[in-house]
Design a protein around this nucleic acid. Structure first.
Lengths: 183, 183
DNA sequence: ACCTGAACACCGTTCAAGT
DNA sequence: ACCTGAACACCGTTCAAGT
């Protein structure tokens, strides 16, 4: 005799994201998720292969959110402004959801979702430096932003200097470097 | 009656680094370390507060190595060449010891060790852009390198394009951006 | 057809007992 | 003074038994 479903994959992922931000990746246990969705831990295996697959699914959901935010932020017609707004949106997202940011580069990476998140950057750099250099330029911008945010989160910028100023400085000089002719 | 010491903190850290590179952070268990140094797991707690402190100690040892490599690489008198060599050395280190690279920004970060590793970068940027901008420039270079290597490791650059070319492109344009006047 | 208790292997960690 | 076995709490995961 069938039993009604007491939860869903969507609910599990949503619970996972909440627990992740609240307790970090180490607090994201099958037990904790099960309790939050009102079920016992073994039942989760009906919807998810194992914990690793669950982390990947959570990372995908996070990346979908981030992609939407970046796309909206980069809507300016001025390519330079679009990139500045995009960088600001990325930083805002990371400051709001630091544990989520940590996960997307840690979890058995969902490459397609990562690629999709990079697309607004790619569009903006295409407008800024042209088609031929667009991919390399996008990788430069993405790498700088991601590295900066990771180091800021790790506290590596805590000793001396103004972090906001360092962010603006980095962004300005990256954009200048992209705009200039390389000898 | 005293018992002779059967291991040492140095041996534990060395064993930790080997296991880390071989089996990843999740394989770096107290059991695995104990077996490698010829002791039982509870004995490790004579030398180390807990696993977290052990990870920090391993990260510190890794950073000391990395610092030495970067310092050597950046010894050129030409500031631009110094930065290029430094970036190459960093990338080489990460390709040799990817798990070690992952750990240094993951482990309850040893901030002083991280700061020390950044010092060769700071010296090189000071020579390149002058005293006032040195710190901001170092943070730009460090962030770009670290972000690039992390994304390369995560496989985010696996889809299309030449990764080596993207690295060179990024480095050139970062240095150009630093060298140019920002309007 | 989904959910559960019980069980298993495997963690980190503590501690009394050994030498 | 260091090392160990035994024990504990807590993981992820499997599976037979329930409804």
């Amino acid at each position: 005799m069938p039993t009604p479903e007491r939860t869903s994959l969507a609910a599990i992922i949503a619970a996972g994201r909440e627990i992740l931000e609240h307790s970090g990746a180490s607090g994201l246990t099958m037990q904790a998720i099960a309790t939050k969705v009102g079920v016992r831990a073994p039942s989760l295996y009906k919807r998810v292969r194992d914990r690793d697959a669950l982390l990947t699914a959570v990372a995908e959901a996070i990346l979908a959110d981030l992609t939407a935010r970046l796309t909206t932020a980069a809507s300016s017609a001025q390519p330079r402004e679009a990139l500045v707004a995009l960088a600001g949106a990325y930083r805002g997202f990371v400051q709001e959801q630091p544990e989520s940011f940590r996960l997307i580069f840690t979890a058995s990476a969902p490459l397609e979702a990562l690629t999709r998140a990079a697309e607004p950057v790619l569009h903006a750099t295409r407008d800024f430096v042209g088609e031929t250099e667009a991919l390399n330029a996008a990788r430069l911008v993405t790498a700088w932003m991601t590295g900066f945010l990771q180091m800021e989160l790790a506290g590596a910028f805590r000793l001396g200097g103004d972090v906001d100023e360092a962010f603006d400085y980095g962004l300005e000089h990256v954009l200048t470097g992209l705009g200039a002719q390389v000898r």
